[in-house]
Each structure stands twice: as C-alpha cells, then as structure tokens.
C-alpha cells in the first residue's frame, strides 16, 4: 500500500470568488487547483503483544489516538482546500483551521516516529549510534540519562533527540504539546511520547519514570541509527 497519495481536486469557481487575491488568483479565474497530500495510517510492523512490560490495551488506545491525528490532519487539509476553492480563505474560520494544522500534523508525524522505533524486546544498541551520541554526551549512559531527564520534565509533550544538519550536532529537546519547540530542519532521531495517554493507564500519574524504563527495553536501536544521516 502506498503510504501517501496525492489528492487533487479541480474545482470550478464563480467569477470573482477569489477577487481579492494576488496575481495567482485573478478575479476572472474560473478554475483553481487545490492539492494536498492525503495521509494514511502507517501500519505497525510488530505486534503490541510482544512489547515487554507495556500494557497492550494502553498501546492499542495509543495507536487509536494516532489514527485520530491522521484523520484530523486530513480533515483540516480538506476543509482548507474546500474553503480555498470556495473563495472563503480570507476568513477567521480558515485561519483557525490553519492555526491548528501544526498540532494535528506534528501529532501524526511524531507518533509515526515513536511507534516506528519500537520492537518487541528491543535490539542491542547500535555501535554507530553509540559513537554518535558519545561524541556529545561522553558516553551512551550519559545520553540515556539526559534524554530520560528531558522526558521527566513537568508538563506533557515529547522528549526528542534531534540532529542539526547545519552543525551536524545532536541535542535533546523538550516539546510542549506536539508542535512547540521542534527546531526547523532538524532530523528527529529518537522520539519519546510523554503525554499522559502514553503511560498513566498502566503506570499511574507518578509512573512516568517506570514507563520510560519499560519503553527503553523495547527500542529497535537499528531503526534509530538509520535516522542518523
């Protein structure tokens, strides 16, 4: 199955529908092409049953939440495409759908990185990855401690190891919600969800640390290593 497919819609507009636009949309325009990439669910390559120390029901609910982000990303994009075609892009409603796109889109994509790095019982630590993080943190253990510390920060969001393509550096970032704090152009390498939905059902409100420890035992480090340029 193709992961994504382009949806193209040709919509006929009445004269003057986009009259206030720039040169792209002229008053006499009768047709406008609105294209967006339709997102589909990324299927799991493993079974939740196999993840050690992590509750299957909780993981299934989490995956259902991920599907919600895919649906809502598509919904937001289709609403925008329809409104644009109908000449309603200069409205408050359109602006607020656009404002929300970052939340839904990042929510979708970060969950794909997250579920994509898990594997029943994990894998041995990749040597290339170990060298890369050791160059910045001194040792593998120091990086594990720092990403855990990042993930233990108060509030809900994500702890992410990012690669900076400009300095070729690595750094751990805290992301509020899904969309606040992602550095532009950086490559997400290790992506850890610490929203309450990721752990509270199994580990309780104070169980974030236990969740992180359990999750780290189910990481496919070769997938993480492949994300490094």
């Amino acid at each position: 199955m193709k992961r994504r497919e382009a949806i193209t819609s040709i919509l006929t507009l009445g004269a003057g529908a986009l009259a206030t636009g720039s040169g792209i949309f002229k008053a006499e325009a009768r047709e406008v092409q609105t294209t967006y990439k339709f997102s589909t669910y990324t299927p799991l390559t493993y079974n939740f049953d196999g993840l050690k120390g992590l509750d299957k029901d909780m993981l299934e609910q989490h995956y259902a939440l991920y599907r919600g982000y895919v649906n809502n990303t598509n919904k937001a994009q289709s609403i925008m495409a329809e409104m644009l075609a109908a000449g309603k892009a200069d409205t408050t409603e359109f602006s607020e759908v656009r404002r929300r796109l970052g939340f839904e889109y990042a929510g979708m994509r970060l969950h794909e990185y997250y579920f994509g790095m898990l594997k029943p019982e994990g894998s041995p630590v990749d040597e290339k990855l170990k060298r890369a993080v050791s160059a910045f943190w001194g040792s593998w253990e120091n990086w594990i401690a720092d990403i855990t510390r990042t993930a233990m920060m108060r509030g809900i969001g994500w702890a992410i190891l990012y690669y900076d393509p400009v300095t070729k550096g690595l750094q751990n970032f805290w992301i509020d919600d899904h969309e606040n704090g992602n550095p532009p152009g950086f490559e997400p390498i290790f992506v850890l969800d610490v929203w309450e939905h990721a752990y509270i059902k199994q580990f309780g409100a104070g169980g974030r640390r236990a969740y992180i420890d359990a999750l780290l035992k189910n990481v496919d480090w070769s997938v993480i290593a492949k994300r490094l340029p």
């Binding site: 609910q61 919600g68 809900i156 929203w195 309450e196 939905h197 509270i200 059902k201």
Partner: peptide, 13 residues
C-alpha cells in the same frame, strides 16, 4: 480535560 482527569475511567475517545 487533561487526560489524567478521565483516562483511567474512559477510553480517550
């Protein structure tokens, strides 16, 4: 309506 307020009693949806 944080998740902690209801997630133990209801599925997120």
């Amino acid at each position: 309506v944080w998740e902690h307020a209801f997630i133990l009693d209801y599925v997120p949806a």
